[in-house]
């Protein structure tokens, strides 16, 4: 059987602090297959960026992976040394950050940054690297790429800069791309262009994409499957249509209902009371139980089981519209 490109198993990230150990990522498991876009949604502080950074090995100290596995095409990478990881980054994993201006070096031309990355990972001549850089820029839709390759990042507009960042992530032909809020800083019309680009690259090159965002609309249009995170844990994981239309977890359903579009024509939006608990102050049972309208004693006392990759499963003791055969594995 073919391995998924990325396979995360029971990943735990911990941050030791003076007030005890925080777990921004707690027992998270998911797979991403070739040519698939996995959307990761959640509110700020839910641990979605932290998961992405853990996968690519860019956790800032003192955050560290304390248990679990990360497999890239079946090979464990969570225990690699920094220099080994450095070789993997760019070559097999690419990263796209939220703010294109801060992820490009303002002192180097776009071409220099691209050829540097290409020559770091592929053994090619200068001329060949240059050609590949031009091809990468053309592929992401930058007009007159050969002329613009000698421009500096500040000479590009926001949308064009994000294309350059995507070209950088793609130029060494990685199998996995982690896109952390790639369109949040962009306008609607440019956002549509970038999303169409990501989808096309995913389809044509068979790249696996982990798309981290807080925008449910972007997830609905781009992702094949979606993982909903809450307080560091996976709340729900499944095909995008199932999760967004027939949510099993009360948090997912509340999140969907509170978007203005879903309450169209109603005077008031549905709202989830309260806000996400701080990591240092998590409730004892299910992290969502204090805000959940269906919470019972069992939810308040016992942490929910962690979910493994499968179809449409929710980490909830009493999943909505559930029947017996779809119960969560303990």
């Amino acid at each position: 059987m073919q391995h998924p490109i990325l396979s995360v198993r029971n990943l735990v990230v911990e941050i030791p602090t003076r007030h005890g150990i925080l777990r921004p990522v707690d027992q998270v498991s998911y797979d991403i297959h070739a040519g698939e876009i996995l959307g990761v949604v959640g509110e700020s502080g839910a641990g979605k960026s932290m998961t992405g950074n853990a996968v690519i090995g860019l956790l800032d100290r003192p955050a560290r992976i304390t248990s679990g596995e990360i497999l890239l095409s079946g090979e464990p990478i969570h225990n690699k040394r920094p220099d080994e990881l450095r070789r993997l980054r760019g070559k097999t994993m690419g990263m796209i950050f939220q703010d294109p201006l801060t992820s490009l070096n303002p002192l180097l031309t776009v071409g220099e940054q691209l050829t540097e990355t290409i020559q770091e990972h592929l053994n090619v001549s200068n001329a060949e690297a240059q050609d590949r850089a031009v091809a990468a820029l053309e592929e992401v839709g930058i007009p007159a790429a050969r002329a613009r390759i000698n421009s500096y990042p500040h000479e590009f507009s926001g949308g064009m800069r994000q294309r350059v960042v995507i070209a950088l992530a793609l130029c060494a032909e990685p199998d996995l791309i982690i896109a952390d809020e790639p369109t949040t800083a962009l306008d609607v019309s440019v956002q549509a262009q970038i999303i169409a680009l990501l989808k096309r690259l995913c389809r044509e090159r068979g790249v696996a994409v982990m798309l981290v965002t807080h925008d449910m609309g972007v997830i609905a249009e781009a992702a094949d499957r979606v993982a909903v995170m809450y307080a560091g844990r996976l709340a729900e994981l499944g095909p995008v249509r199932d999760v967004l239309t027939t949510a099993r977890h009360p948090y997912t359903s509340g999140l969907m209902a509170s978007t203005p579009l879903a309450s169209q024509g109603q005077k008031r939006l549905r709202q989830i009371p309260g806000s996400m608990p701080r990591l240092g102050n998590l409730p004892q049972g299910c992290a969502f139980s204090p805000r959940c309208e269906f919470a019972q004693d069992k939810c308040r006392a016992n942490p929910t089981p962690h979910i493994q990759d499968g179809d449409g499963r929710a980490a909830c003791w009493f999943p909505l519209s559930a029947n017996s055969e779809q119960e969560v594995d303990a």
Partner: peptide
């Protein structure tokens, strides 16, 4: 603008993205 805005019910919607900036 209306066409380009991502829609929460737009599963797998393939839009022709707007040209230019």
């Amino acid at each position: 603008l209306f066409d380009a805005a991502p829609r929460i019910d737009g599963f797998g919607r393939e839009v022709e993205p707007p040209k230019g900036e």
